[in-house]
């Protein structure tokens, strides 16, 4: 279903790098990556996952998961935790805690606190734990500043460093607009996946391009990193990956 795209990104292993960042260019939808990663993590026995829903409701991940062959409802409350910010805001309206800022706490501080609580209550009983955040640009929309978002990501990266087998995966849309934040957040981790559109226009057989950058060894003076480029196509029930040159225009 989604193995090929996870293989290409190097995210199909049981132990993931501490911090992974997904940058999404304007007008490109990279939500499928979150669904693919979520499915992979849920399939590992006794691996905990926490999803922070900022872009879509939990129901979206459930439906997308069903298409990819897994049922999130079975795992919810057991190995899967959900912080559904969107549903909270929809239900409570303008009095939602994400908008009200009680005790002078900022939105990002509140979110970090909630994530910390979830991690602390679940981490000890799990072999590994993954925190998925979809997506950071919504924090900007809700009034967070660049500094606050940067601090939020740094707190999460620190959380990942404190604990073994804890992975934080963030996604940022409109990376070309929030370029500075995007680069700074990407620097916190070892893997950066850029979801890019095709510069040559729309093509029926390919949706876009994934540029995967991975830091292999960060020495004192030199940094070894690899770059890989693949094309992807999101189908109804799977995601296909092609190497550049594999697909061409049929005349």
């Amino acid at each position: 279903m989604a193995t090929s795209v996870l293989l290409a990104c190097g995210l199909n292993e049981q132990k993931l790098p501490g911090f992974v960042h997904i940058s999404e260019e304007s007008n490109v939808d990279g939500s499928f990556l979150i669904s693919c990663i979520l499915g992979q993590r849920l399939r590992i026995s006794n691996a905990g996952t926490l999803i922070v829903c900022l872009q879509h409701h939990y129901q979206h991940y459930f439906n997308a998961g069903m298409r990819l062959g897994y049922n999130t409802n079975i795992f919810q409350g057991k190995t899967l935790g959900v912080i559904d910010v969107l549903s909270d805001m929809a239900g409570e309206g303008l009095t939602s805690k994400w908008l009200r800022r009680p005790d002078g706490q900022t939105l990002t501080e509140q979110l970090v606190e909630d994530i910390r609580v979830q991690v602390e209550s679940n981490y000890s009983s799990r072999n590994s734990y993954t925190v998925l955040i979809d997506n950071l640009s919504i924090l900007f929309n809700l009034g967070a500043t660049k500094l606050q978002v940067q601090q939020f990501c740094q707190d999460l990266a620190a959380l990942a460093k404190e604990r073994d087998n804890l992975t934080v995966i963030t996604k940022l849309s409109n990376s070309d607009i929030y370029q500075l934040t995007d680069n700074n957040v990407a620097k916190l981790g070892q893997v950066r996946i850029q979801v890019l559109r095709l510069k040559s226009g729309v093509f029926r057989e390919v949706d876009g391009k994934l540029l995967i950058e991975r830091v292999l060894d960060e020495g004192n003076y030199a940094c070894e990193e690899t770059r890989k480029e693949v094309l992807y196509k999101v189908n109804d029930r799977n995601v296909k990956v092609f190497t550049p040159g594999e697909i061409g225009v049929k005349v």
């Binding site: 409701h57 979206h60 969107l86 805001m89 929809a90 908008l99 009034g143």
Partner: peptide, 18 residues
């Protein structure tokens, strides 16, 4: 700009929830 984007984000949350 700030208000418009915030409004659309909250509208998106409400519309998707029902």
């Amino acid at each position: 700009g700030e208000d418009l984007i915030k409004f659309l984000t909250l509208l998106m949350a409400s519309v998707r929830n029902c």
